[in-house]
Design a binder for these strands. Sequence first.
DNA 1: AAAGTTTGTGCAACCCAGTTGCAAAGTTAA
DNA 2: TTAACTTTGCAACTGGGTTGCACAAACTTT
Lengths: 137, 137
Amino acid sequence: MKNEIDKKLTDKNIKPTAMRELVLQVLSEQKTATSLPELERKFEKADKATLYRTLKTFEENKLIHSIDDGTGSVKYALCQDACECHPEDLHVHFLCTRCKKTYCLNDITVPTINLPKNFSLESVNMVVKGACSNCKS
Amino acid sequence: MKNEIDKKLTDKNIKPTAMRELVLQVLSEQKTATSLPELERKFEKADKATLYRTLKTFEENKLIHSIDDGTGSVKYALCQDACECHPEDLHVHFLCTRCKKTYCLNDITVPTINLPKNFSLESVNMVVKGACSNCKS
DNA sequence: AAAGTTTGTGCAACCCAGTTGCAAAGTTAA
DNA sequence: TTAACTTTGCAACTGGGTTGCACAAACTTT
């Protein structure tokens, strides 16, 4: 258990502290992406700033990626193992407008776009909104 | 001039007040999408809340649409004449990571996505990031 | 093992976009 | 002109995100 978590951290060159183990543990358990405020609620004890910096560290080291789904708080989810967060690695995200959960649609990669002349591409944020299978009446 | 602006407002069932005429005027002049804070700076005089509510009114009446480009402030741009803001009307937006301007790529409609079973689609926010033609070195 | 260095954590304070309540001003209707 | 409604302006607040700083914990070096 703990060893798997620690391995994930060290594989990405992140020193495995107690805090980081806990946060990664929780993130691993989620089926949908998690925001900083949500994380704060899950860890009554922990400090917002620490959680914030933990997420930043994870993101910089490509352990997680962030999704801005327009709900006002950025959400985070684990990257796929080999993910380098390059444009061709990116997948579509789905925000359920009912339950406000954000899903990583890992097997739906973002479509290629033909940009206008002299525009260069760095990344894509694609959020599809609608009702998820749980909420669809 | 003023008549065109007023016509656009009344066509969308928005009462043409002085404030609204001014805001629509300014929005019409922009080649890129405009945020509330930017608008505040353009109108030193006007109140934030009024501008805010003006934008909301415009958006509700489908005169403008909003784009969350992840910069921390939502941006607004005029809709195309016949726009109903339905999924099939939506276009891709481009955020230049250098100059932070957000372009409506009006002739690039968002690609169709095959959602998982029992997921329904309401709308799509697709923001491509990179360097625009002005900023590309 | 002690002193020094680096890294991580916790607290407090802050910034800023967005939002709301309320009262004053303006507009429309009777 | 009065009454009803709409718009505007001010002030205050919310909440997510961010930073400075001091303390604690973990590595280094001798």
